[in-house]
């Protein structure tokens, strides 16, 4: 019941905000929007208004607030839907080929990560009666072999197992700082970080958070997989703005690091490692060695330890030592050298 009332109230609020050119004050909204009318003024009503604005923001409806000059109280602030939130329906109409591609793109996020965003996008696209994308395949028409949707042939899934994903996005939307414990690659114990979240980036199959590390006072990239505590959010000590093109800039920087960082390997020909490393972006053969690229020496050391005896690091020695240390830890943890000497007792 509560859901239905909220839906009706938010719809009513949206129509009021769309209808006005000059904006309504909060008081005016409380008087004219079904669902606020008749409610007693006070904290409960204020909280309801805040929740409703959040619900609209989730749909991409940004509410513009303007306060008269010199007035710090929000009594006279006027609310309206920001220009540019509404567009022509034609902008969201696509031809058959485009619909086929969008259908496939939507399915990438079926299992997580950008699931909510893609479902909301699909809902908006379905305003066009021709758009059937993202629905279960058996309900998609046109399944004749030569007209089968591409999604029937190619299935893509990107599963972000990374639990903090949703919490980070929510905080980023609301301009709040996040606090979490982070286990930096190569370190043994986590450290608490306070970050102004800017963007999420998927690079070489790993989701990352890009933001401003408040304590380090610099921008940093965090692997979501290595956030080991729940993500808490709080009001930012100092309000922050997300830099223009934060995500694209971070991605370009990662590509640059990848280009510049190399490890040379001796690889058992025809081994699984051989075949897989050759498919890695940027891999080349030099003097009989396989030279691969990476974005972090600790991460690449983990990956190389996973290839076991199929690979041996030739240079740089720093990475060779990191891989060796990992293998020694694996050996010792599994009753290797340490147990044999009786030190486990």
């Amino acid at each position: 019941m509560a859901r239905i009332e909220a839906e009706e109230r938010q719809f009513s609020l949206l129509l009021a905000l769309v209808d006005t050119r000059t904006g309504f004050t909060k008081q005016e909204l409380f008087e004219r929007v079904a669902g606020y009318q008749g409610q007693r003024p006070g904290d409960a009503l204020e909280r309801m208004f805040e929740r409703d604005k959040d619900a609209l923001r989730e749909l991409g409806i940004v509410i513009d607030v303007t306060a008269p000059a010199g007035d710090d109280s929000n009594h006279e602030s006027r609310y309206r839907v920001l220009d540019g939130v509404l567009g022509s329906p034609a902008e969201l109409q696509f031809d058959a080929d485009e619909r086929d591609l969008l259908d496939l793109a939507l399915r990438v996020w079926h299992e997580g990560g950008l699931t909510e965003e893609s479902q909301r996008a699909a809902l908006k696209l379905r305003a066009d009666p021709e758009f059937r994308g993202g629905l279960p395949l058996e309900r998609v028409p046109g399944r004749r072999v030569d007209h089968a949707p591409t999604a029937a042939l190619v299935q893509a899934r990107q599963r972000p197992r990374e639990a903090p994903f949703a919490a980070l996005k929510r905080a980023a939307d609301r301009g709040r700082e996040v606090v979490f414990d982070y286990l930096k690659p190569g370190e043994r114990s986590p450290r608490t970080r306070t970050v102004q979240p800017w963007a999420t980036v998927l690079f070489r199959g790993r989701w990352m958070l890009v933001g401003h590390d408040v304590d380090a006072d610099d921008s940093r990239t965090f692997l979501m997989q290595r956030i080991v505590s729940p993500v808490r959010d709080r009001a930012a000590r100092t309000p922050f703005e997300v830099p223009e093109a934060a995500a694209a800039t971070a991605l370009a920087k990662l590509e640059e690091i990848w280009d510049g960082a190399t490890v040379a390997l001796r690889v058992v020909p025809g081994s699984d490692a051989d075949i897989r490393l050759r498919h890695r972006p940027g891999t080349e053969e030099r003097d009989g060695l396989v030279v691969i690229h990476h974005a972090d020496r600790h991460l690449v050391a983990d990956e190389l330890a996973g290839f076991g005896a199929d690979v041996a690091v030739v240079w740089p020695e720093e990475v060779g030592a990191l891989v060796r240390a990992r293998l020694e830890r694996i050996r010792d943890a599994h009753g290797g050298a340490a147990a044999a000497e009786g030190s486990a007792a």
Partner: peptide
């Protein structure tokens, strides 16, 4: 209301579609 208007994609909704296309585009 919404006679010739529609609520646009939010930046993140558009990002989800664009990112999905980037991941699969080459396979179509």
């Amino acid at each position: 209301a919404f006679e010739d208007e529609t609520v646009r994609l939010s930046p993140r909704e558009a990002s989800a579609l664009i990112a999905g296309l980037t991941l699969v585009g080459d396979y179509t």
